[in-house]
Computed example of a mutant assay.
Amino acid sequence: MAEPVPRMADFRKSRWFALVWAVPAAIVLVSVAVLGAQWLRSLPAMQSFITQFPGQSSLPAGTPVGFPAWLAWQHGLNAFIMLFIIRSGWQVRTLTRPDAYWTRNNKGMIRTKGSPVRISLNLWLHLSLDTLWIINGVVFYALLFVTGQWGRLVPVHWDIFPNAISAGIQYASLNWPVENGWSNYNALQVLSYFLVVFIAAPLALITGLRMSPGLAAHFNPLHRAFPLSAARKIHFATMVFFVAFIVVHVTLVFATGALNNLNHMYAVNNGQSWLGFAIFSASLVLMIVAWIAARPFVLRSIAGRIGTVSR
Rank of each mutant, 00 (worst) to 15 (best):
P44Y: 10
M211R: 12
F219P: 04
P4G: 15
Q189G: 14
K113E: 14
A293M: 08
M1A: 14
W70I: 09
L83V: 13
W124K: 13
R300E: 14
Q189H: 11
T147W: 05
R12N: 13
P44K: 05
T256G: 14
P44H: 09
N263R: 07
Q52N: 12
F161T: 00
I199L: 15
I165N: 00
A142Q: 09
V5H: 08
Q74D: 13
D10P: 04
N78I: 00
A303N: 14
S58Y: 00
F280Y: 12
W90N: 08
G62V: 02
V139N: 11
D130S: 08
R305F: 06
W158M: 05
F236K: 08
A72E: 07
N175V: 04
V253E: 06
A2I: 07
H218F: 09
G148A: 05
H75I: 06
T207W: 07
S310T: 15
N175G: 06
A187N: 04
P162F: 00
L143D: 10
R118F: 08
W102N: 11
N184D: 07
F17K: 07
S183P: 04
A217E: 13
I81D: 08
N180Q: 05
F11M: 14
G148E: 06
I169D: 06
L191S: 02
V240T: 08
V146P: 04
L59M: 11
P68F: 03
A164F: 02
R15S: 14
L191F: 01
A26V: 11
L95G: 02
V298C: 05
V197D: 12
H157C: 01
A278M: 04
Y185C: 02
A79C: 10
H235E: 08
V146D: 11
L71Q: 14
I306D: 09
I110H: 09
K113N: 15
I165Q: 00
Q91S: 05
R305V: 08
T103K: 03
A142W: 12
T96R: 08
I206R: 00
I160P: 00
A18T: 15
L19T: 12
P177M: 00
T308W: 07
F245G: 03
F245T: 05
L144G: 08
A61I: 02
